[in-house]
Write a protein that binds this DNA or RNA. Structure first.
Lengths: 207, 207
DNA sequence: TCGGGCTTAGGGGATAGTACCTAGGTAGTG
DNA sequence: CACTACCTAGGTACTATCCCCTAAGCCCGA
């Protein structure tokens, strides 16, 4: 799957100050990036799709939902876009809250054009890695989802290190039947070895 | 191993301002905690042992090594003590740097006694969990360390999902010999199943 | 009602791993 | 020189897992 980075990766800019928003969008575009401006957190969240790639730049102080709330909302939605928070007021408390909420960067206005561009480029790279990791994770998760209830039970017992005999005793079924579920688990998970299966399952966080 | 929390867990306080240091130490002691004061990052780092438990409270602005440098030094030493950074100056840049360097909290002077005590208690709990995780990790790491060169190679190939036959071909030795190394690995790692072995090894970070 | 998916299970054979036995060569240490 | 640790490897037997065959009962939607 070939993709044009500029077309695929969007820099979502959220700022209620129209002038600041425009100038930032302009700056990003002039650097060959693909910015998309929003005047409020709400309109941005509505427009945001799950498969979005790129990063977010948000002002802190905005009517309605502020930048930190937006950040928390994004994290709650398991959004993996890095967020650069910008502020016009030197408020340490807000900065700390933003960083604890998972902001990638927190910078004060006015900032150098070069600085924001450098941070955006770093965030885009970070997001590329996160997208890869997330895709891997989702692939495994969807495979686990395709397992039947029994197969999932068997997977859990395999993860616990139980042998087929033990699994059979635990589930009160024949060892033969366990073998079948085990084979199904291996093929549905597309694991070609036990260590593969375990690594996949562990890394998906579904322990 | 029974331990008295107050005696085991130390709150390391680093501040070049003797009056502030004393009052903070006093406050912590009055709350039943076990504080230990240092007037510089250097003297603290010298006194710090690897098995220390508790947390750190450090001022930012200090002659010699400042709070953020101290924080980075601790992280570089893989120290798992949570660090609460306190500052007398509302400097957003420093706050962001501290948070990015892994500070647990960043608060401004003057602060409420109740606030710092609450944060310290949270950090102590956080450290308890981190100590447990670190102990588990070190136990596994020391077991890996007890493996011979060949046994380690076999472990790596097992982690890759290779069968004994494949391992034998890879190392150009007899499958029989691989079986022996494999058995040694299982017993030295004290794993009672393959999934045990894989989970242990993965969680130790020695992938 | 019929097909499909889920759960259940037996037989039999191939392949893989474990557990016991033995034992030779090499390299470093006291 | 003896002792220890490491790497090497064969035999044999047992257990575990995997892979092929078949096939029944259950429930649900078309």
């Amino acid at each position: 799957m070939v993709m044009t980075p500029a077309a695929e990766r969007t820099v979502f800019v959220v700022d209620d100050d129209a002038a600041a928003l425009d100038s930032l969008v302009m700056l990003l575009r002039s650097d060959g990036l693909n910015p998309s401006g929003f005047s409020s957190a709400g309109t941005f969240l509505e427009a945001l799709t799950r498969d979005a790639r790129g990063c977010v730049i948000s002002d802190v102080r905005m009517p309605g939902m502020d930048g930190v709330q937006l950040l928390k909302t994004l994290k709650a939605r398991q959004c993996i876009l890095p967020v650069i928070v910008i502020t016009g007021h030197a408020d340490v408390t807000v900065a700390v809250q933003a960083m604890k909420a998972g902001a990638a960067e927190f910078i004060q206005k006015p900032f150098e054009s070069e600085l924001i561009l450098r941070l955006v480029r770093a965030c885009l790279e970070e997001n590329d890695d996160a997208v890869d990791a997330s895709a891997r994770r989702n692939r495994v998760l969807s495979r686990i989802d395709s397992l039947t209830a029994r197969e999932r039970q068997v997977l859990n017992l395999i993860m616990d290190g139980a042998s087929n005999k033990v699994i059979a005793a635990t589930l009160a079924i024949s060892p033969r039947t366990v073998e079948i579920y085990r084979a199904n688990v291996m093929s549905k998970m597309r694991a070609d070895s036990l260590s593969d299966l375990i690594r996949m399952t562990l890394s998906s966080g579904a322990a």
